[in-house]
Design a protein around this nucleic acid. Sequence first.
DNA 1: TTGTAGGCGTTATCAC
DNA 2: GTGATAACGCCTACAA
Lengths: 368, 368
Amino acid sequence: MAEKRSDKTTITDVARHAGVSTATAGRVLGGYGYTSAENKEKVRLAAQALGYRANQLARSLITGKTRTIGVVAGDIQSPFYASVLRGIADVARAQGFGVLLTNSDERLEREIEAVQLLLEKQIDGLIVAPCDTSGARHLHDAAASGCPIVQIDRRVAGLAADSVTLDNRHAARDSIGRLIAAGHRRIGMIAELERFEFGDMEAFVDGVVAGSIDPETLFPSWQRLFGYIEAHIVHGISIDRSLIGRAGTYSGSAARAATMKLLQRADRPTALFTADGLMSAVAMDAITSLDLSLPDALSLICFDDLDWMRFLKPGITAIAQPLTEMGEAAARLILSRIGGEGSAEQHHVLTHTLALRGSVSAPQAIDA
Amino acid sequence: MAEKRSDKTTITDVARHAGVSTATAGRVLGGYGYTSAENKEKVRLAAQALGYRANQLARSLITGKTRTIGVVAGDIQSPFYASVLRGIADVARAQGFGVLLTNSDERLEREIEAVQLLLEKQIDGLIVAPCDTSGARHLHDAAASGCPIVQIDRRVAGLAADSVTLDNRHAARDSIGRLIAAGHRRIGMIAELERFEFGDMEAFVDGVVAGSIDPETLFPSWQRLFGYIEAHIVHGISIDRSLIGRAGTYSGSAARAATMKLLQRADRPTALFTADGLMSAVAMDAITSLDLSLPDALSLICFDDLDWMRFLKPGITAIAQPLTEMGEAAARLILSRIGGEGSAEQHHVLTHTLALRGSVSAPQAIDA
DNA sequence: TTGTAGGCGTTATCAC
DNA sequence: GTGATAACGCCTACAA
């Protein structure tokens, strides 16, 4: 019959009520040290009678552990982060850990603020989708100050922290390979392709061809373009740079414009590859508004497997990322680091699945 | 030039380094009380030199405020909770509050555990989508212990706590009204319809007809059914209970089976109303697999406006909930309560938007 | 304006 | 096994 006092019953109250010292009360309530069965029972009863609830703040202050992990997501509203977060939260809950969530909107200033907030709240570990893969001074500092970090989706160059990412390059290369095998030679691509410091698109394509670009710490959309280019190289197909549509930072309207432009050309591509979920939805919108019928007028492979891709007619062939698994892996990693695991940094690269559906066929001649 | 010591620089270190007392250091670092400009500067410099970072745990322990709000969502992976959470996080961040997230999976035991965890972490307020609208002892206790609570999506009967919900009943009534106005008389419905204690479906329909059921604390899918029934009553159309498909607790397969059964009947309905996002996706899947063409063979209105509803051909007429707004409203409410606002409990009821698209037309004769 | 002293609710360290 | 007592890092008196 727990009372409902104003949330103030402390361990001292319980001790007094049970007729023991605060130390003893602490031992049974905190589950550490030795206590006689008799006192254990007395304390438990007292605690229940008073409606005692442990104050983890005080505990954390002294133990130095909060059993809380911080997460900096780009935007939880997106299916990507929502699923990853689900995986994180599940693993955390199973271990009695809490999850403190923030959004960066992929903006560095936000990320810096978020990390600061989380660190001040003394999180035991940080899972972050870094939005600057080259500098990230705040992450270096956090890591140096002893806070374990796990990166997801992309990696900061030179940061000594674990990571869980996808094999973006291979996923794209395989998919483009499928299109090429189906007979396509002009394959359009719609991708975000923001934040690239090594020059412009031309320079990037040249760099990939020349083998002078390290794909490890590129943003996913660039890694996917990397795979797109590689597939062309492997099959000896020249790259028409004008078929690569850059949508810019998660802007639906820019992506739509780029797609429309690509699909309204007289020499439009016979196949299209969209580099993430947003691009896929936008492209699909453009495709239906142009009344292009899949797969006859256009073949399509999308990165990210969204639910509608299953029940459209025809179904959309899609690259599925193991999203909750990514979150789970990240959470397991951070928990093992928190647990004291001190081995060298680990970089988990997860594998995609290609969901083959009906949106790919051999190209049709566009002009009869 | 912040050093990267092992996260241990305390206010005492800063004070010593600056040559002042801990009280003075605390005053400038914590931003309270009076300090001379000279000392202010000295302390700031010392703090920066040592890489000082405030320990909010210690601060919270003494102030009794953590500047953290706890959230118990059903499943962040769903677009519904993802969007609501986004709204919550935005408002919280703007006020410097953190968000501690948990999932209940709509299971009471999980919710109880989650609330316990959050309370022990001393959250300043709780936003919860309660999964039991009748008992909820843990929520009553939490409220009694002084923790402000805001309920979202549904309300616990008799719980003295604010809420933010949708006008589910009106949204459904209006939509069904549209279908009836278009000429439909046999309108199918696919809904979750779990957790109903007042009897079975028959009893519910009878209860609504008799006006003996209070819709306030029903689960959303029941409120939507309530509106469905009301629309029929208003227009003098008798209700064929066999047209109401119960899918059970968020199970895609059960929902699909129910939909298929409904749509394969000889006397199948001429219009369909799906009561939430999952039901809509599943129904759409069934519809395309049966090759029913919208809106000729079937008219369709969906609860929850998912992105694919915009670019399908025809577009799907949908009831859009203001989801991020729901989260924002909930966060604003909880923050004002935390700020000491002591007025009577507030119940915000948000209004839906009906996105009119091409999935509704007059019914066609099924057998020629 | 500044410093000293006490305490927030726990856990940790000792003697007993 | 148990109970004083000192931390943990900070804030809040209060006195100077």
